[in-house]
Amino acid sequence: MTEAVDALKVYLVGFKANLVTALFLDNAAIQEINLQGVIYVGRSGSLLAVATRLFLKGRVNATRAMLITNWWPPVPAVDAVSTDDGQLEAILREKGDAVFIVCGCDRILRAAHLSQGKFVNFHNSILPGNRGVAAIKWSKFNGQPVGFTFHTMAVEIDKGEVLYQHAVAQDLQARGFPVLSELLATRAAQVLPHLIEILQGLRSSVRFKKEVSSSYHSKADTEHATRVLKDMASSELIEKIVFAFEELRLVNESGDVLRLAPVHVRRPAGVWGKLFRQIDLLGAEIFLPVWLVKRARGFSCRR
């Protein structure tokens, strides 16, 4: 690694209970950049509960990453910083001239924050397509390639200069959200040394070879897309929504949820897992009563 790359101070900005942040920190490539520390934004979640849930689902590597992030971080950490009272702004100012790589942070950074250094965001879509939330799911729903973008941050959400883009292999595009999310975060962490060299002017930016149409989706857009009136629920529409969003709410005219569709591709182990694997064989249009969904791990029960 060149001396110029070593001279660039880097901080990660993430969320402590977020798997993307954890996978960035636990990747071997993190040792190849001049990482000074990690800043955790927002309140910490129930860390032990998150790690236990990942372990029970068989995601041993993710569990290990979560534990390392929270109890054995490889770099100094600033914990549970608020974005609303000037606390984050003051911490960023203390770090001086540095690059802040935002990965897995669910808080919006304002102009006062972005003025304190150079900010680069990891977004899990090929921008300018599918800005906003649930980007992987919207990419699948819109028939666009699933991938990620590193870009400089601006006040507008998920806008800025594209620095590096990558799409997963075609044969992996149809995988479920948990698998794709982990694949993208792992690959993004691996290219961090390359990203730093782009920021230093030592390499050219890497853009996806095909243009993706611009779009933005809010949380409300995603919730609306997964709610379908019972009388309008064709099998083709159901299949498309369940494939992309891995959840679907069948509602009546008053908006009450009648039935919920199965969500995650990875099923729980044990009796529940065997039962729902059999249900899956019957097709995506099979719905379960709300009360039963609430008892089943791996199924959505949000209303």
Results as ranks from 00 to 15, higher is better:
residue 125 S to T: 03
residue 162 V to G: 03
residue 111 A to Y: 09
residue 137 K to S: 14
residue 205 S to D: 09
residue 169 A to K: 07
residue 114 L to R: 12
residue 203 R to G: 02
residue 194 H to G: 04
residue 181 S to Y: 10
residue 179 V to W: 06
residue 221 D to V: 06
residue 202 L to V: 09
residue 134 A to F: 13
residue 220 A to P: 05
residue 197 E to T: 09
residue 120 V to N: 05
residue 150 F to T: 01
residue 211 E to M: 10
residue 226 T to V: 15
residue 191 V to A: 00
residue 130 N to Y: 09
residue 225 A to I: 04
residue 114 L to Y: 10
residue 232 M to K: 15
residue 184 L to R: 03
residue 201 G to S: 06
residue 224 H to A: 15
residue 230 K to E: 10
residue 221 D to L: 07
residue 231 D to F: 10
residue 231 D to N: 12
residue 120 V to G: 04
residue 124 N to C: 09
residue 155 V to T: 14
residue 114 L to H: 10
residue 207 R to T: 11
residue 198 I to F: 02
residue 179 V to N: 09
residue 182 E to W: 04
residue 226 T to K: 12
residue 231 D to L: 05
residue 227 R to Y: 05
residue 164 Y to R: 02
residue 113 H to G: 01
residue 156 E to P: 04
residue 204 S to F: 05
residue 206 V to Q: 14
residue 213 S to A: 13
residue 216 Y to M: 07
residue 118 K to D: 08
residue 183 L to N: 01
residue 140 K to Q: 11
residue 197 E to Q: 15
residue 121 N to F: 02
residue 233 A to L: 03
residue 132 G to Y: 11
residue 201 G to K: 03
residue 208 F to I: 01
residue 212 V to G: 00
residue 169 A to E: 09
residue 147 G to M: 00
residue 147 G to L: 00
residue 133 V to N: 09
